[in-house]
Amino acid sequence: MALNWKTGGLLLGLVFFAAVLLVKPIGVSTQFVILDGIIGDAVNADLVTQTEDGYASTNAYLDKSGGKYAKSVANPLNYSFVFVLAMALGGFLSVWARGGLTRAERSVPALWRANFGESPAKRYAAAFVGGFVVLYGARLAGGCTSGHMMSGMMQTAVSGYLFALGAFGAAVPVALMMYKKEVSA
């Protein structure tokens, strides 16, 4: 089961501190754009091109801020992209070390099942639509739970508080409406 909040919070805080001590604050959602760019550039090689002083893209978003996203698309072995790949590795090893998940947990989580039934298709559809909305929102906001909420508020960034206000302002009412039936433990 999950760590006690005191131990867990201390460990999580130490990871945030290590990141800003050694490199820079943690962020994740930009890498969805970078992966999209890598896929897009593989399909259409004109998407990202090298210029005399860096990289440019035919997509205005990849091209913004002097083509910094275009540069990451062209060079995927950069800190931020490898960081997210490593998160997957760390998560995998951690779950494996504690014995893995049950078959039920791997398709339909218990709280979802109690409220919406056992259909995996329904759960997968909700996860897909949720993912779309989450990443669209994260890119509009310029960051996600990691970059804005945790890293942002840790640095007393005004943008981090605004983001947390919007995120919890929507997440709590939606969860109260969706998850009326409780599950034990």
Partner: peptide, 27 residues
């Protein structure tokens, strides 16, 4: 430090709704 703009709140609202529905955020 990231920039503050109105879209930060709007994007936060979208992310929050999707986070509650799916149970996941990007990381």
């Amino acid at each position: 430090v990231k920039s503050a703009y109105i879209g930060v709140i709007l994007g936060g609202v979208l992310l929050g709704a999707g986070w509650a529905a799916a149970g996941y955020c990007p990381g």
